[in-house]
Amino acid sequence: MTGSTPRSTHGAIPDPTPDVTSPLLSVQGLRVTFPGRRGASAARAVDGVDLDIRRGEIVALVGESGCGKTTLARSLLGLVEPSGGRVTFDGAPLAYSSRALKAYRRRAQLVLQDPSGSLNPRHTVYDIVAEGLRIHGRAGNERTAVAEALSRAGLRPPERFFLRYPHELSGGQRQRVVIAGALVLSPELLVADEPVASLDASVRGEILALLLRLRAELGLSALVVTHDLGLAWNIADRVAVMYLGRIVETGAVEQVLTAPRHPYTQALLSVLPEAPGIPVVLSGEPPDPSDIPGGCRFHVRCQVLGGGKAERAGVADACRGRDPGILDGSGESQVACHWARSAPRAVSPG
């Protein structure tokens, strides 16, 4: 698998090494629903997700547009209140009062995909980065903190950027300003939603390398939301593949992306330019989240079921009629697929 940056160096967390056995952030049975239009059933955007992110770990959340990735990411930061389940940060359940969320967001920060849309064009770089300090009442030594955040984000010398406006910066520089605005509060977790999607290919590698360096220098944890499996390969320790509101495969990035077990993961990987064999073209569009199919939610598009392999393995009825269940958030290699569970050797690529 190719990419614009080298694979991450695991374990590159500065000493003293924190306790990585307990998750920094943990999600149990998370559900997010939105009311249906004109009496229609509620849309189940996130439909039962367990996910752990450990200290110093980068997890990539991958899947098609509309699968629920961004809704899940926003719910982890308290921007969307779950309809069910629980989010726990550093051992404490996330509370949704304004005061509790304000305190939480000093420790967990969002990095958006479109720096042009997330930066106020009327504010200087200095004021953009300083905004978090002012909101959270940490304006003491503001100039030093802003300079340090810009420098960590790769904008050096930082004073050169203080009085610039977003339109005077390149796309890569604007994304670095967004990252600096997150770093200025010294968070423990970054949630990055498609952090390089709007950037030129030549700049993407620089931003990915920056995120890896921040993990190595600061011990940051991160959830990186992306549809780009190449990005996941280059930056993540672990990957979670999401389909129609639920994680359907998870495990170490090398394992999932070199030996995918779920037919959906196999289809996503098959269309990469360097993938061997014939690309898998899935039939139809993902079902409406207000009308999720029974059984395995992927079965109506599944190439394994449609091609007769599930029938030959004796699991076709289970695919159509039995929910494979919610994967736990432990990080172990897991797959929500009756066929993969029944015939693991049959799914190895090659």
Rank of each mutant, 00 (worst) to 15 (best):
G219H: 14
A267I: 06
E249N: 03
P263H: 07
T265D: 08
P273G: 05
D228P: 03
A232H: 10
A236W: 10
L229V: 06
L212N: 09
A275E: 06
G219L: 14
A216H: 13
L208K: 00
P279Y: 09
D228R: 04
L210V: 07
V280S: 05
A252R: 15
L229W: 08
L257C: 08
P263K: 05
L257T: 07
L211K: 07
Y243T: 05
A201F: 02
G230Y: 06
G205H: 00
H262S: 08
R204V: 01
G277I: 10
A222H: 12
M242Q: 06
Q255D: 14
A232S: 12
T226C: 04
L268F: 10
L268P: 05
R213P: 11
V225P: 00
R246P: 00
A267K: 02
V203Q: 03
P276M: 08
L272D: 07
P273I: 10
G251F: 05
G251E: 06
Q255L: 07
A222I: 14
L208S: 00
R213L: 13
L229G: 03
V203W: 01
L223D: 05
H227S: 04
I278Y: 12
L214I: 12
V248P: 01
V280H: 07
L211T: 09
G251T: 06
S270R: 12
A267N: 04
V280R: 09
G277M: 10
A209E: 11
H227M: 03
N234F: 02
S221E: 14
V239Y: 05
T226R: 03
G277N: 11
S198H: 05
V224H: 04
A236L: 12
A216N: 13
V256N: 05
Q266S: 14
V225N: 01
G230H: 04
V225D: 00
L199W: 02
P276H: 05
I247P: 00
T226N: 02
P263D: 07
G205Q: 00
S202I: 01
D228N: 11
I235D: 03
S202Q: 01
G219C: 15
L223T: 07
L199V: 04
V241Y: 03
R261D: 10
A252M: 09
S270H: 12
R261I: 06
V241A: 06
A222K: 13
P279S: 11
A222W: 11
A201S: 07
S198V: 05
V203A: 02
D237P: 04
L257I: 09
L268N: 08
